[in-house]
Nucleic acid binder design. Structure first.
Lengths: 117, 117
DNA sequence: TACTCATATGCGTCATAGCTCATAATACCT
DNA sequence: AGGTATTATGAGCTATGACGCATATGAGTA
């Protein structure tokens, strides 16, 4: 026989993990990340984000939509403006955790060499 | 100089944030996430991951390379085998934090409607 | 050396995602 | 209603990424 070790069969992506990868994928886009960090804890309207990032209006709206549909930001209309804000401040905390994790692990790390452990 | 207000000008993607989005992008791929969760805290060699996930050898190697270059996993050669393991257990913790954050925020959330706040 | 097993890599293909242009929808004002 | 400002959306182009095939590299063994 080949090998039939403890957990041989495919773990069958549970829904949680799919959602997770979907959300992470949304987070991973550089411009979207910029928007998130630019938002910080305050709400800003689209034009403000445009000015801050230098991105096109269409493009900002495009990315905001992705962020919105992933549940990462919320949108509120005030008059002609639409304000966007983080769905939850904890998200920023988690992102920063990941950020500092990377900062702690990537620099001296010889991550591209093969024999490491 | 033109204007120099608080944060008018493009924040000029600092390196940290670029690395962050790069790493997150790597994390966001469903198969890579499966591999990571499949690894858990133990080291496994490529064939083992192939069996566990049902992915092609080429594809597993492809994704492992991405994970490796992002500093998310480490590789160690033992004889003809190459064992891969998480670069750090904390990564799993952070992922799970994000996972539960999403679980707490996405389900009942009317994230796709516009007027929310 | 030759042969086998395990893994990595170059190349080509295909699908998806990001971007822009043009235009639509929505709100406000006169 | 008409006019202006703000944001959203559909169509099309392009670049990027994931995948498979073939092949190369490397380790072990006879």
């Amino acid at each position: 026989m080949t090998h039939m070790s403890s957990r041989a069969i495919i773990p069958a992506n549970d829904r949680r993990e799919r959602d997770l990868s979907q959300a992470i994928r949304v987070l991973g886009e550089p411009n979207r990340l910029r928007i998130l960090y630019n938002l910080g804890l305050e709400c800003r309207f689209v034009s403000s984000i445009m000015d801050a990032t230098g991105m096109t209006q269409t493009n900002v709206s495009f990315h905001l939509r992705a962020l919105r549909e992933a549940g990462l930001v919320r949108a509120e209309r005030r008059g002609p403006f639409v304000y966007y804000c983080l769905a939850d401040p904890d998200l920023l905390r988690i992102l920063n955790e990941l950020k500092s994790w990377l900062a702690a692990h990537s620099p001296s790390d010889s991550s591209d060499s093969l024999i490491v452990c």
